[in-house]
Design a protein around this nucleic acid. Structure first.
Length: 161
DNA sequence: AGCAAGATCGGT
DNA sequence: CCGATCTTGCTG
């Protein structure tokens, strides 16, 4: 996922709901969560019904509710039994993971969807202009301790901040 | 069954 | 800085 995550900003999240026009948003900000060692990653707590899909082969969606209010949109990126995921933190027009899922109507029903085979939601690489991707520390994970808190695993388009 | 905590956000 | 709001996972 440290191979996948930096390449996501600049690509297009596409949603094609029946009866609605195709919608596409450029991904502007993501964060990588990698493996059971990463104390910021939910999988560090073990394999549970919620984190199950993270242990699958990459390409599926990991969705969960945070603070009882906001749905978080993640893409599983690891091989089987190697739990890794990328949190989509922002797209053009929606800055922030909570606002993003609210704006795109992402909820529990997207859990486990395979981006490769789904005709509802997928990631598309359009013309890649000269997009500069910057990196920084992940947000909202102070509980993970200094080592993991300070990893430069957030990647974002230089424009959108 | 009860409880503590959370990859956020918007308002004081 | 603080509360909203509810699912999850752990304890008993």
């Amino acid at each position: 996922m440290l191979e996948v995550a930096p390449g996501l900003p600049g690509r297009y999240l596409s949603i094609n709901k029946p009866g609605f026009p195709l919608q596409q948003w450029m991904i502007t900000e993501v964060e990588a969560y990698r493996g059971s060692d990463d104390l910021a990653c939910h999988a560090s707590k073990g394999r549970t019904p919620r984190t199950e899909v993270m242990y699958h082969t990459g390409g599926k969606l990991y969705i969960y509710l945070i603070y009882g209010i906001y749905w978080m949109l993640n893409i599983v990126t690891g091989e089987a039994d190697n739990p890794q995921a990328v949190l989509i933190r922002g797209v053009t027009g929606f800055d922030g993971p909570g606002k993003l899922s609210k704006g795109l109507s992402i909820d529990r029903s997207f859990y486990g969807i395979d981006l490769v085979t789904s005709d509802l939601i997928w990631i598309e690489e359009k013309k890649r202009e000269s997009i500069k991707v910057l990196k920084g520390t992940r947000i909202g994970i102070d509980y993970a301790g200094d080592i993991w808190k300070n990893k430069q695993w957030r990647f974002f388009v230089s424009n959108s901040e």
